[in-house]
């Protein structure tokens, strides 16, 4: 096994990790800020891919799909929060979990009715087709683009949460909503927006995944599991944790591929079990 192969494998792992990060981010944010386990995350990811495809076919441009679909579906997410999730705040965690679980079935079935059960082609945008020679091996230009988008999204999220007044309110609200209310902050509005952003990120993941995978009504089911594993490894509710965990899982899968690629799915769970044994709250989970 030569060094070049190990290097390109490492890079593949980071690239896969970037995809895992973007798929997990929405789940992590909604749980971290609202304490809601969004079981419809995978379905919303799938709806994002279909939405992106739909907008792209209407406008004839992938870029509109990438920009508009996540915003549209983010707004849809706000409606979900306002209409369905909000009445369940303050009740046990199971209630929103069951609600979103049911919602995921509704979404998958709705997409089946509208778009059919067969997969639909989502062509790679023409500007991003082809492979780039990285020196250590070849890599699709589109996947490099995805890494850049993920990096930009993370930077924007970090700026919004750490450097703005709104971010301050969100973080404070996550710690103690009661105090925030006493201080006269309309926390409901904040949660509405956070839920919308989380759902929009799930949809963005879906649009980005579209040209790499086939688009079909069930494409979200495995994504939900992957997102959970990443979120749990990172520590529930920790944004930084999700990023580190996503990259870690990507690299673990990629390195496993060097000697036993058939274990690609299992290694993710093995890593989770291992980390939970050492750190029961995940890598960056807050202690009680």
């Amino acid at each position: 096994m030569d060094a070049e192969l190990i290097l390109i494998q490492l890079f593949s792992g980071v690239a896969l990790g970037a995809i895992l990060v973007i798929t997990a981010l929405g789940l992590s944010i909604i749980f971290g800020m609202l304490g809601v386990v969004n079981f419809a995350h995978g379905a919303l990811f799938m709806v994002g891919a279909y939405g992106g495809l739909w907008v792209a076919s209407l406008t004839g441009s992938f870029w509109w799909g990438l920009l508009v679909a996540p915003i549209m579906i983010g707004l849809f997410g706000m409606i979900i929060e306002w209409l369905l999730v909000r009445p369940l705040y303050g009740r046990s965690v199971d209630d929103p979990l069951l609600l979103t679980f049911g919602l995921s079935y509704v979404l998958v079935e709705a997409v089946r009715i509208v778009f059919g059960n067969d997969g639909i082609p989502f062509p790679t945008p023409s500007q991003l087709t082809g492979v780039a020679n990285l020196g250590i091996g070849y890599f699709p230009i589109y996947r490099l683009f995805v890494i850049v988008v993920v990096a930009v999204v993370l930077l924007l999220l970090w700026l919004a949460l750490e450097k703005t007044k709104f971010g301050l309110i969100v973080r404070a609200g996550a710690r103690d909503p009661t105090i925030m209310r006493v201080l006269g902050v309309n926390i409901s509005k904040v949660w509405l927006l956070v839920f919308g952003v989380g759902v929009g990120l799930a949809a963005l993941g879906g649009v980005l995944a579209g040209p790499m995978r086939t688009v079909n009504p069930e494409m979200g089911s495995l994504v939900l599991i992957e997102a959970f594993v990443v979120t749990v490894i990172g520590g529930l509710g920790s944004l930084l944790g999700s990023v580190v965990a996503g990259l870690l899982v990507g690299i673990a899968i990629s390195m496993t591929a060097l000697f036993a690629p058939e274990l690609g799915t299992i290694v993710m769970f093995a890593l989770m079990a291992l980390i939970l044994l050492v750190r029961p709250r995940g890598l960056f989970g807050k202690t009680a």
């Binding site: 390109i8 994504v223 690609g264």
Partner: peptide
Amino acid sequence: ELLHPIGAPDYSTLMPRLRA
């Protein structure tokens, strides 16, 4: 020969070895 898990959505990590 490389084996992959059934239902795998991503094959990117297998491509370098297949090419090699």
